[in-house]
Design a protein around this nucleic acid. Sequence first.
DNA 1: GTTAATGCAAATGTTTTGCAGTATA
DNA 2: TATACTGCAAAACATTTGCATTAAC
Lengths: 147, 147
Amino acid sequence: MVNVIKQKGSARQILDRSSQRVTAQRTLLLEMLRQSGGHVDADELYRRARKKNSRISLSTVYRNLQLFKKLGLVEEHHFDEEHHHYEAKSGTEHQHLLCVNCGKVVEFACPVSWKLREDIGKQYDFDITGVEVRMTGLCSSCHTKEK
Amino acid sequence: MVNVIKQKGSARQILDRSSQRVTAQRTLLLEMLRQSGGHVDADELYRRARKKNSRISLSTVYRNLQLFKKLGLVEEHHFDEEHHHYEAKSGTEHQHLLCVNCGKVVEFACPVSWKLREDIGKQYDFDITGVEVRMTGLCSSCHTKEK
DNA sequence: GTTAATGCAAATGTTTTGCAGTATA
DNA sequence: TATACTGCAAAACATTTGCATTAAC
């Protein structure tokens, strides 16, 4: 098991520092994650990675997503579907707004969540490590079409 | 708190109104959901229901959870585990606080989410139908033990 | 040279589905 | 009586794991 707390630096530095090997697959996966920018599931990432390295396996994708998550390089989201979505961590904190009709995902800043986190943590004596706000509804073009 | 009698009536009415048959299994499942109050997954609900009706099948549980969800009788949550959690809808709106160590789920009121909903909806021209706030961390007894 | 990481295939765990029998309206 | 609902078993999914091989250190 890996014993790591959140760290700063390039992905490569983080791998080095936590004595994880810098393999071609890991480099490729991190690159794909960053390129896709948005939100991908394991299978989508696998399909994209296969275009560059046709021998990469799906279990490697899953294994490394777990690792990246532990190292704080990606965030895992549980949207309404059955499978998980992953997102390369950018510096900026944000929350998600989802269109239930077309599946569009919009990111929005939510500074209020910090106050909320503090208040609720104090109130229930929880040591809170993460806050996720998810709103669902119809995006502009979908609720226009509906009329 | 939950008003059992009132809900029993309305659940039945809702089934009737949407021309769904009121079967023994559906009645039992709704009763179990209401009794358990909190958050159960399909398998937990199945195990509880089997104590009263040993012939009920897991597929019936899944099929009816889908139906109840569609009818608005239960809410489906995607916590960090692989499986979904279901919760009988009570009148009171609340959000969730989860302990990543022991799995405890705490409900908390979050009136701020209404303002947030309005603000974000206006800003991105979304017709927002739901807001979910989920906080994760260590509960009081788990972060005490860790030291 | 050691040992962690990979690819493959098989296993796991959850949820869904086809179908014949059963019970509700 | 007609047909929606159920139970069962099998299928379909996403995800994980065991193991021999490969590659990073």
